[in-house]
């Protein structure tokens, strides 16, 4: 059996699922960001696998898309960590279940 597109898609699905759980269930805000990064990596892996295995009109446009996703992920993580630092400075915790100022 050859290593084909399906192998990479299933691997991406597993990574995405684990990242989703980490992002939903972890208590520390930085743990949540780790889950988000894991999900972005899973999506990138899936896109690169499609670019490798599926014929398209514009060659490797998926890889260009992956480059943009990485740039946006870097911006997102910078702002997210800055927000975590601000919350920590004001409330001495970054546990997402204790930051509930906006809870009605």
């Amino acid at each position: 059996m050859t290593i084909g597109l399906e192998h990479f898609l299933v691997l991406g699905a597993l990574l995405f699922g684990v990242g989703l759980y980490v992002a939903l269930a972890k208590r520390n805000a930085i743990g949540v960001l780790m889950g988000v990064e894991l999900m972005l990596n899973a999506v990138n892996l899936t896109l690169v696998a499609f670019g490798r295995f599926v014929e398209s009109e514009v060659a490797l446009s998926t890889s260009v898309f992956v480059v943009f996703i990485i740039a946006v992920a870097a911006a997102e993580i910078a702002v997210g960590l800055a927000l975590a630092m601000v919350v920590y400075r004001n409330r001495d915790t970054i546990n997402v279940d204790r930051v509930n100022l906006l809870k009605w």
């Binding site: 269930a25 972890k26 208590r27 520390n28 743990g31 970054i94 279940d97």
Partner: peptide
Amino acid sequence: RAARDNAETA
């Protein structure tokens, strides 16, 4: 001073 135990929420 934040918790580093990597625990889960509800």
